[in-house]
């Protein structure tokens, strides 16, 4: 498992971060108003929510995208209720 994502965790949007899923489903954009980082991910919102719910099942390259979003402070880990 990755440095950031544990076996019994899911991911969620960090409070206070701005995000916008585009109507054409081309992706989501994020803006951290404190660090002023702007970034995007080219995945539609439905799939992205699945990624957040179950990051353990992701391919290496997709997991790497999530790690970047964690590092940038857009998403955080949260424990899954047993």
């Amino acid at each position: 498992m990755s440095k950031y994502i544990g076996k019994k965790t899911k991911l969620e949007y960090k409070k206070g971060m701005l995000k916008h899923p585009f109507l054409d489903k081309s992706g989501l954009v994020f803006f951290n108003t404190q660090s002023t980082v702007v970034t995007s991910i080219s995945v539609n919102e439905t799939i992205f929510k699945e990624w957040l719910d179950c990051p353990q099942k992701l391919r290496k390259e997709d997991l790497s995208k999530l790690r970047t979003l964690i590092e940038q402070g857009f998403i955080v880990e949260s424990p899954v209720a047993e």
């Binding site: 585009f22 054409d24 081309s26 992706g27 989501l28 954009v29 702007v38 995007s40």
Partner: peptide, 17 residues
């Protein structure tokens, strides 16, 4: 697509942040 255009437009913004 919209995501690509957004990122390019932000790159060209003077006062976005």
């Amino acid at each position: 697509n919209m995501t690509e255009s957004f990122m390019q437009l932000v790159d060209n913004s003077f006062n976005f942040t």
